[in-house]
């Protein structure tokens, strides 16, 4: 120890975080206040104002079409959602749903372009791969700390931490999907004189769609798995009910809230999977 003084890595990271915080203050303030307000309006003024029966009906109809006009998913959706409402967890469900939606949307909006960039350049792939590994293996709790530093407590830091945790699969699968498009098809596109953008939008992305959707499905699931963790920094929703139950050692209410998360997970998973069909697939 004596020869090598401790390297002040922790201090550096703290300093860097503070630097970022200072430098991007206007953006962080905007996100915390305006974006935070918007999330709140979305959850409390819109979603929660829809009558429960109407909400269930709409989701059931969507489930009917998403699952190719079968009734299994419809039945599960109706029973599951009704159960959550019956347990008095409807508002929590709506908050969780909001968190997942925003975190997933942002992850996809960031993740797909990065995936494309990665697919188009070997150098970018070499740089991003270890970064993605790092993002996914770092314990999710750690992200809560800069999230709080940047955004205080509430929904916004929850979304922020979820985005960091949930984005990698979308990036990876987008990259993979595009690279998987056979070389001969890319050549075929080239041989007809496509521009880079035409090749991307008319051949590579449509053909990678299935793989990209699988990545998005994982992203949504990861975002959902952040719900409980994010509730530790004040994100409202089912996660909070779990934490409360934990603190009070109430097994029953803890599990009921857990069921709510599972039900939401299954519904979202089936929805995103069923959207995952590609033109020209053989049935």
């Amino acid at each position: 120890m004596g020869i090598f003084p401790e390297i002040p890595v922790a201090e550096w990271i703290t300093a860097a975080t503070e630097g970022i915080q200072e430098a991007l203050k206007p953006i962080f303030t905007f996100l915390r206040e305006d974006f935070g307000d918007f999330i709140e309006v979305f959850a409390e003024d819109w979603l929660m104002n829809v009558p429960i029966w109407l909400f269930i009906l709409i989701v059931a109809v969507l489930a009917f079409f998403a699952s190719g006009k079968k009734f299994g998913l419809v039945a599960f959706t109706v029973i599951g959602l009704w159960f959550v409402a019956n347990q008095g967890l409807w508002e929590e469900l709506m908050n969780t749903f909001t968190l997942v939606i925003f975190a997933s949307l942002i992850s996809v909006i960031i993740g797909v372009p990065f995936g494309i960039w990665m697919a188009k350049s070997k150098a970018v792939e070499n740089i991003l791969t270890p970064v993605l590994d790092f993002m996914q293996t770092m314990p999710a709790f750690v992200y809560l700390i800069p999230a709080v530093a940047f955004f205080g407590i509430g929904m916004v830091p929850g979304v922020f931490a979820s985005v960091i945790f949930a984005t990698p699969p979308t990036v990876r699968f987008t990259n993979l999907g595009i690279r998987q498009v056979s070389g001969e098809l890319v050549e075929a596109a080239d041989s007809f004189g496509t521009t880079g953008a035409q090749k991307l939008f008319k051949v590579q992305l449509p053909m990678a769609k299935k793989t990209i959707m699988a990545g998005i499905n994982q992203t949504v699931m990861l975002a959902l798995s952040m719900v409980v963790i994010a509730s530790m920094i004040g994100a409202k929703g089912l996660g909070q009910s779990v934490i409360t139950a934990l603190q009070r050692a109430q097994v029953g209410p803890g599990f009921v809230a857990g069921f709510g998360i599972v039900i939401l997970a299954i519904i979202i998973d089936r929805f995103t999977q069923n959207l995952n069909t590609q033109r020209g697939d053989n049935p």
């Binding site: 056979s182 001969e184 098809l185 050549e187 075929a188 596109a189 041989s191 007809f192 004189g193 496509t194 521009t195 035409q198 008319k202 051949v203 449509p206 053909m207 769609k209 590609q278 033109r279 020209g280």
Partner: peptide, 27 residues
């Protein structure tokens, strides 16, 4: 120049008509 490929290299997500029009579509 137009090329015909050994293993066809048709775009599986496009119909036959959409495949045939590909070269014109990108123009």
């Amino acid at each position: 120049l137009s090329m015909v490929f050994q293993r066809f290299a048709l775009f599986p997500h496009r119909t036959i008509l959409e495949n045939a029009e590909f070269g014109l579509e990108i123009q």
